[in-house]
Design a protein around this nucleic acid. Sequence first.
DNA 1: GGGGCCGTATTCAAGTTTTAATACCGGCAA
DNA 2: TTGCCGGTATTAAAACTTGAATACGGCCCC
Lengths: 191, 191
Amino acid sequence: MSATRLLVLGVVRGYGRAHGYLIGNDLISWGAGDWANIKWGSIYHALKQLTKDGYLDEDWPVPGRTDYQLTEAGEFEYKRLLAEAFRRPQPRPDMLFAGLAMLPSLEREEAIGLLEQRLAHLESARAEAAEKLDGWQEPPHVRELYGLWVHTADGGISWTRGLIDRLRSGEYPMAGDPGSPGVAGSWPLPA
Amino acid sequence: MSATRLLVLGVVRGYGRAHGYLIGNDLISWGAGDWANIKWGSIYHALKQLTKDGYLDEDWPVPGRTDYQLTEAGEFEYKRLLAEAFRRPQPRPDMLFAGLAMLPSLEREEAIGLLEQRLAHLESARAEAAEKLDGWQEPPHVRELYGLWVHTADGGISWTRGLIDRLRSGEYPMAGDPGSPGVAGSWPLPA
DNA sequence: GGGGCCGTATTCAAGTTTTAATACCGGCAA
DNA sequence: TTGCCGGTATTAAAACTTGAATACGGCCCC
């Protein structure tokens, strides 16, 4: 499960209602083409699939354009995917990048809690890889795989600690903050 | 372009000739299911596709089993993919893991050269991300994306330097080493 | 001796991603 | 005025991945 669904749901939610081209432009302008491998085709596919799954509603304000908005189930699915993105480290980092792009739709304490779960996962993955690294015999170069794994996990741990600290010290406006842009989405509305 | 083709070609090459189940068992036993998201279906699909593309030859030694071996074009394609895996850092690390698994089919100087190219790519990616990080204004949390990018690049740089050092100091038997297992593949032959 | 389970070996359908193509519209230069 | 380019908006076909399903043989145990 890749980051596409989370990003598409997140942008639609942010606007309230949006069509494919609008969503794609936002994502591409954030560099999501690079860090999440987002392509035009996957955006349009995701929109259709999310609609089929009952997470989005379509309508046709003008011919040749399709607008989408989140259903109630879509709101839950969005929150579920977002929590997963932070909670569970995966070999492919695109989920984390996507989660980060949607960070302010979480409440501060919620985000910190999820990141602490991430930390726990990373620490146990590190321990497991370190164990294999110690025990490895044959062929020798395969040790490098586990070494890289340990190195990557260490990097992830220190970065996660840093973000937790920044959130604790009040960095970034988050959902539910006093005087915040609010839960419903703080997107710049299209002109 | 994912790691599947490189891994499948590499294992077939290592054995000289092999069928899907044999290949899959090797890859799964190396943990490739985790670090490269390899599944049974993608192995069989890759075998068929690589055959169609002229990189593998099929034959049927017994009914109900298909054996494969590399064509000459397959040998070139393997080397090309392997070089790409080391040379070009990508957001998804599975290519690097796959390259690492096939490390000893490169000559020592070749591997070091590729890793130096990797280093150069990483350093310029880091610089670019750091620049965006400095210049970013709005919305504030998007800075975290670039911060993570910088952090990840730093980790990649230090790990790459480490591997270059290990290779320079003679670690691991490599293709073309005096008294090495040789270019043609050093796989344990099936019993 | 047959019922169930494990290992061998592959296929299939559904979902997802990738790449390229399509269509239309407005502006601007030759 | 026409020819083309860039921006808007989507579709289509092919490739790839995922997860489950299939088939068959051997072995063990009651």
